[in-house]
């Protein structure tokens, strides 16, 4: 257990105590806890985010649920643009379902302190495309960018340049 505890993030108890569904951590050994947290994402922050460990490294992986994102015209007032159904295949209670918009813009924001220090991270956009989806083919890429704000050393090069992504 002493060895396995070293593989867990320093603040793992704080994270577990904030889980949406109580994790019986006291009944688990540190090894069991490590496997539980790497095999099965833990919903945190009222269920708006999920927390998981990368099994090979013990590094933190955070996923923001759609409700945690800022989606243009996705505030629920215009369900003919965006709808908020329940999705049994999602770890989150609700997903954002796009019906059609003329301007697609999504922002996500999180505290970098939630992540493992001194670690190289990749940000992914996770989605499903229906068979009849359109507007996402090779001729219609989207712009994507990851930025890090407010670094103590003022290094604004800590983020990647804008790139084109192809959902289709």
């Amino acid at each position: 257990d002493v060895l396995w505890e070293k593989f867990l993030p320093a603040d793992y108890q704080e994270i577990i105590s904030g889980a949406l569904h109580l994790l019986p951590s006291a009944a688990l050994s540190e090894k069991e806890l490590y496997y539980r947290l790497s095999d099965d994402p833990l919903l945190i922050d009222g269920g708006s985010k999920s927390f998981q460990l990368e099994k090979s490294s013990g590094k933190k992986c955070i996923m923001l649920g759609a409700k945690e994102l800022a989606i243009s015209w996705g505030d629920g007032k215009t369900p003919w643009y965006w709808d908020w159904p329940r999705c049994p295949g999602s770890r989150f209670a609700q997903v954002a379902e796009l019906h059609g918009v003329w301007w697609l813009e999504i922002h996500g924001k999180m505290e970098i302190q939630l992540l493992s220090p001194n670690t190289f991270y990749v940000a992914h956009f996770v989605f499903k495309l229906r068979d009849d989806a359109y507007g996402f083919d090779d001729y219609e890429p989207m712009k994507a960018k990851v930025e890090v704000f407010g670094r103590a050393d003022g290094d604004t090069n800590a983020c990647s340049k804008e790139r084109l992504i192809y959902l289709g």
Binding site: G89, P117, N118, T119, V126, F127, A144, V146, Y166
Partner: peptide, 21 residues
């Protein structure tokens, strides 16, 4: 950057990277 299969019908695409130093 192209989307790829993630499992169970989900797709993922790399939006960018950063170093949490």
């Amino acid at each position: 950057y192209f989307a790829r299969e993630r499992g169970n019908g989900w797709m993922e695409v790399e939006m960018g990277h950063f170093y949490n130093g």
